[in-house]
Every structure is written in structure tokens, then in C-alpha cells.
């Protein structure tokens, strides 16, 4: 991996998104609309307190997955990936470059949603902001690479969007976002144990609601880091397949 190549790719992604102002506005506004609707749907503060950390993790997963997936798909359909693969850039440079490029937006989004949830929706919150951020970085890393990986199976944007009900929706239902995992049938609890959002939701709830530290949620963090590493490797391996097809 060459740091200058990673930087080049990351800055290009940032420039691309900044120039696409409508997308930028949607990235920042849509999560706030979603949070407001949910806030209005659950007037009891205890319910909202319980759901807010889970939504923070879900939004990070959803937007990072979708934005990266579609960006990567366009990279292939526009032919720029073919050009990149014929250049001195390595597959790892591309994956890590994408990661850093999207970090800026995903973390900005996290910050805005977090501040909105705390100060506008009046959600109670105990953990340290920096610990929430570190945790979200790990969630976003996995989501960005999941997006890259899944995009190799889609030929166009329509197909990419079809992966949302397949990859994201089941996680929302099965990972304790809306109702506790313990209330689900046994076989679904087994399924939830292999889904990354389960650990993201548990970890963020522990930090935000119980004021626990990153060390306290070490197990959840380790599972998410493991997922991020494995999916990054898989994403890097599958890039060439997509470029040459």
C-alpha cells in the first residue's frame, strides 16, 4: 500500500461528493428527517433513548453501505475502474482510499445526527463523544467495504438498491434495533449473532446509555474489527473480478 495513492483516491472521492451538492445535502438532511420522524413516533423519552443509539449505528451502516456501493458501481460502469486497474494503483490502495474518502462524510453525518438527537430530540446520553466516534469508525469501516464487496454483484444502480432489503433490512429487524434480540425465537437469535449490526447496536447502547468505555465493549468492538478486516480483504480481492468482467 502506498500512502500517497490512498490520499489521491480519498481526496478524489471527497471532491466528487462536494461537487455533487444535492447528494451532499441529502446525506446530511435525510438522517435528520428520519430521526425526527422516529422522535415524533416515540414521544416517551425512555423508548427514544433506547432506540437512538441503535439508529445511529444503523444509519452509519446504511448510508456508508449504499454510498460506497453506488460509487463503486459507477466506478466500474463508467470505465474508470478499468483505467485504475491498468495503472500503478493497487487494489488495497483503492479500498483504503475509499475508506478514508467516505470517513469524512460518514463521521460528519454521525456528528450531526448525534448532536441533533441529544440537543433537539432531547435523548439522554452518558458516554464520551470520542468513544462513540471510535466505535462508529469501526462500524463505518465494515459498512464501506461491505458496499464495495456487494457492488461487485450488481451491474447497475437498480440492482444495487435491491441489496438493501437483502443486506440492511434483515439486520434492522434481527439485530435489536427495534425490539430486543432476547424476545426473538431461538433460531433468529442465532442468526442475529452472525450479523455485524447486532454488535454495533449492543456496543453503542452500552456506551451511550450505560456510560461504558471502549474497553467495556471490547468484545463487540473485536467482532466488528474482525468483520471489517475480513470484509476489507474480500472487497480488495473481488475488485479485479468486477473490473475485468
Amino acid at each position: 500500500m502506498i500512502p500517497s495513492q490512498v490520499f489521491t483516491i480519498a481526496t478524489r472521492i471527497i471532491h466528487q461528493l462536494i461537487r455533487d451538492r444535492r447528494t451532499m445535502a441529502l446525506i446530511l438532511i435525510v438522517p435528520l428527517v428520519v430521526m425526527t420522524l422516529i422522535g415524533l413516533s416515540f414521544p416517551e423519552s425512555s423508548v427514544l433513548d433506547y432506540i437512538a443509539p441503535a439508529l445511529l449505528a444503523t444509519l452509519a451502516l446504511f448510508f456508508s453501505f449504499l454510498l460506497t456501493g453506488i460509487s463503486f458501481l459507477r466506478e466500474r460502469s463508467q470505465g474508470t475502474m478499468e483505467r485504475l486497474m491498468a495503472s500503478p494503483v493497487s487494489r488495497l490502495d483503492i479500498v483504503v482510499g475509499y475508506l478514508f474518502g467516505f470517513f469524512i462524510f460518514a463521521l460528519t453525518q454521525t456528528l450531526i445526527v448525534l448532536l441533533f438527537t441529544i440537543y433537539v430530540l432531547d435523548v439522554h446520553y452518558y458516554g464520551d463523544l470520542w468513544q462513540i466516534f471510535v466505535f462508529q469508525i469501526v462500524v463505518i469501516t465494515g459498512a464501506v467495504n461491505l458496499g464495495i464487496f456487494i457492488s461487485t454483484f450488481a451491474r447497475n444502480e437498480f440492482q444495487m438498491v435491491q441489496f438493501i432489503p437483502l443486506i440492511i433490512l434483515p439486520q434492522i429487524f434481527l439485530c435489536g434495533v427495534i425490539w430486543p434480540v432476547e424476545q426473538m425465537p431461538n433460531y433468529l437469535q442465532w442468526l442475529s449473532a452472525i450479523l455485524p449490526l447486532t454488535y454495533a447496536v449492543d456496543g453503542l447502547r452500552d456506551i451511550m446509555l450505560a456510560g461504558k468505555s471502549l474497553l467495556d465493549v471490547g468484545f463487540e468492538l473485536a467482532v466488528l474489527v474482525g468483520f471489517a478486516v475480513i470484509i476489507s480483504i474480500v472487497a480488495a480481492i473481488t475488485i479485479r473480478r468486477g473490473a475485468a468482467s
Binding site: 478524489r12 471532491h15 466528487q16 461537487r19 455533487d20 463508467q78 470505465g79 474508470t80 478499468e82 483505467r83 491498468a86 495503472s87 500503478p88
Partner: peptide
Amino acid sequence: HLIGYMPQLHSLYTEL
């Protein structure tokens, strides 16, 4: 680095 490649598609970042 020894070669230049112009694929069949325009292969450009249209927003940039």
C-alpha cells in the same frame, strides 16, 4: 507506469 490506456468508454469522473 510505462503505458497509457484509453478504454472504450470515456472513463472519466463526470462530477469533476
